[in-house]
């Protein structure tokens, strides 16, 4: 089984790019399954199903969507196996720029919006720097010069990635992206490890604390002055 994990900021165009790419795979009569993970609401899985791709949908609700994805990878693999798919494509929700949901042997695809400006590649962290393929969207809205600067900034953060310039409206880049999926390593659920540790914050807010005053802070806390401490039993 090959597993493709697609991450990116909200609104970058992950779903639009994937829709075009899944159409290319469907036209090639490839047997692929997809999973769409979101936080609170999505209908995107229906759009994937409409083009004939078996698609599972998961909502992480009040849980970190990347943690949720990791806890459910086993079920996702079972789903793909039950469809006799050779490839599983997982679209994650990805929110905080701090995480990278890619595992060692998946093909990590980062979708990034060129209109967010040339400093964005410096800000987004491991989901860009540990990706195999970086898909730049909305490049048609900016000048060639800005596109070239954006591309250079991506290469500063991830010198070995393959960059694809895509367009979620016209489908530009989808054939190239589909052809990258074959390059994924063989995924082994039992032995897989994350490329980058998931973000952690082990405190009482994680389990439902709503009061904000410092007298209620418990757990591992990091202060704006750089100090880190543990308060609790």
């Amino acid at each position: 089984m090959k597993v493709i994990i697609v991450a990116g900021t909200p609104g970058a165009g992950k779903t639009a790019v994937l829709l075009h790419t899944l159409k290319v795979l469907a036209d090639e009569k490839r047997n692929v399954s997809a999973v769409k993970v979101d936080c609170l609401y999505t209908e995107d899985h229906l759009r994937f199903q409409n083009i004939g791709i078996p698609t599972l949908m998961g909502l992480s609700r009040d849980m970190c969507p990347d943690h949720y994805t990791i806890y459910n990878l086993g079920e996702m693999i079972d789903f793909a196996n039950s469809n006799q798919s050779e490839t599983l494509i997982v679209e994650t929700a990805g929110l905080c720029h701090r995480c990278a949901p890619y595992t060692e042997n998946c093909l990590g695809v980062c979708v990034i919006d060129a209109t967010t400006g040339p400093n964005t590649p410096l800000k987004v962290g491991p989901f860009l720097s540990t990706a195999n393929v970086v898909v730049i969207t909305k490049g048609d809205v900016i000048s060639q010069a800005e596109r070239e600067i954006f591309r250079e900034r991506i290469l500063e953060m991830n010198p070995n990635c393959r960059i694809i310039e895509a367009n979620g409206l016209t489908g530009k880049g989808s054939i190239e992206l589909a052809s990258c999926f074959d390059e994924a390593q063989t995924f082994s659920y039992e032995q897989e490890e994350l490329r980058h540790n998931a973000p952690f914050s082990i405190c009482t807010l994680c389990v439902g604390e709503t009061r904000i005053h410092s007298q209620h802070h418990r757990g591992v806390l990091r202060h704006i002055n750089g100090l880190q401490e543990y308060i609790g039993e």
């Binding site: 209109t115 400006g117 040339p118 400093n119 048609d140 809205v141 900016i142 000048s143 060639q144 010069a145 800005e146 070239e148 600067i149 591309r151 250079e152």
Partner: peptide
């Protein structure tokens, strides 16, 4: 390529932008 775009979206000075592009 000179595309149809009418505005820049990059938040930087004209000089910084031109120098960066020259480097690229």
């Amino acid at each position: 390529q000179l595309s149809q775009n009418m505005n820049f979206l990059a938040d930087m000075s004209v000089e910084e932008f031109l120098k960066l592009h020259a480097k690229c």
